[in-house]
């Protein structure tokens, strides 16, 4: 599992430019599914037909591939880049950040104009230094519209904890890849590795309309409340998978939530309930598709969500796969 997550966090996946992640996932899931295709938004669909034949009901499983990024909007005469955020990044936290451009692999450092207080920094004060000596030199490596993500990679802390800048949500992608491998379900599984979640679940919205499933489930990470003076949340790291009850986009109907809880109990997987009012997910967009889709979610608890160093517990990830597989296995 650790190796799979590492493999998935290597490629850069800015919102709207997820192709490098998509390619890796495509190769990984190909042997286990009946059909793979993509769409205009950048979603990757992997469909595994249900055991009960063409009449099988369909469940859509969504894990977003993208991560917040910086989009180049201008290059100055000395070759410094001006950038704007794709997704929820705060300018005040970015000074000195190391970034990598998805298209060319060029690396850069985020700098800030002098004389602006840290708390007052906005994106118009930031620039990216890619070591260029002129406008022409910079253009060799970066174009307007290119996007950069953090370049911190993957680390281990202690025995069971892993850290990375894109664990949100390559961990969810890893869970979904692994579940496709292991699962046998009566339902047809439409796995959607979704694009553009960080900018408002645009990929998921289109995927829900296209697939028109009978039910949907998102796989994502969610912040914990177990660090000093943390937000008042109930999830803990290592406490087992979180079953979604509420996030910023969604209230999960109790009957949908209870089906997942029952699966956890039957499979003897420890679980927690996620109530996370400031966390966005693809669930809300999927729920609103067409006539409305009963939607739930399973999340991996994570520390430091929204920073370049998200931390998860490997046992939580393993148990999330077990829970998801058990849940899918019982669908008839």
């Amino acid at each position: 599992m650790k190796e799979l997550i590492r493999q998935l966090t290597i490629p850069s996946g800015p919102s709207g430019y997820e192709a490098p992640v998509k390619e890796v996932i495509h190769t990984l899931v190909q042997p286990y599914v009946d059909e793979v295709y993509d769409d205009a938004l950048g979603n990757l669909y992997a469909v595994k037909r249900g055991a009960s034949g063409p009449a099988a009901k369909t469940i859509l499983l969504a894990a977003h591939m993208d991560e917040p990024a910086l989009s180049v909007i201008d290059i100055d005469d000395q070759g410094f880049l001006r950038v704007a955020p794709l997704g929820p990044l705060r300018a005040s936290t970015l000074g000195g950040a190391r970034v990598i451009f998805a298209r060319t692999g060029r690396r850069g450092i985020v700098g800030a104009e002098h004389g602006v207080a840290q708390k007052d920094l906005d994106f118009s004060h930031l620039f990216v230094d890619i070591g260029a000596i002129s406008l022409d030199d910079a253009r060799e490596h970066v174009r307007i519209g290119d996007a950069a993500t953090f370049a911190y990679g993957f680390d281990e802390v202690g025995a069971d904890l892993i850290v990375g800048h894109a664990l949100d949500n390559r961990v969810g992608c890893a869970v979904l890849v692994e579940a496709l491998k292991r699962t046998h379900s009566g339902y047809t599984i439409a796995a959607v590795f979704s694009a553009q979640q960080e900018v408002g679940s645009r990929g998921a919205r289109v995927a829900g309309q296209r697939i028109h499933p009978d039910a949907a489930l998102v796989l994502d990470v969610s912040p914990v409340g177990d660090t000093p003076k943390s937000e008042r949340l109930a999830l803990t790291l290592g406490g087992g998978p979180g079953i979604k009850a509420l996030d910023a986009t969604m209230v999960v109907a109790p009957k949908v939530r209870d089906m997942i809880v029952d699966a956890a109990r039957l499979a003897d997987v420890p679980y927690q309930i996620e109530v996370s009012p400031r966390t966005a997910s693809d669930a809300g967009a999927l729920f609103l598709s067409r006539e409305g889709i009963p939607t739930g979610g399973i999340v991996v608890p994570a520390r430091y969500v929204g920073t370049p160093s998200q931390m998860v517990h490997l046992r939580d990830v393993e148990q999330t796969v077990t829970l998801l597989t058990a849940y899918l296995g019982q669908l008839q």
Partner: peptide, 10 residues
């Protein structure tokens, strides 16, 4: 427009 239906190249 680009989010309509199955997604539209726009």
């Amino acid at each position: 427009i680009h989010l309509t239906g199955s997604g539209i190249v726009s």
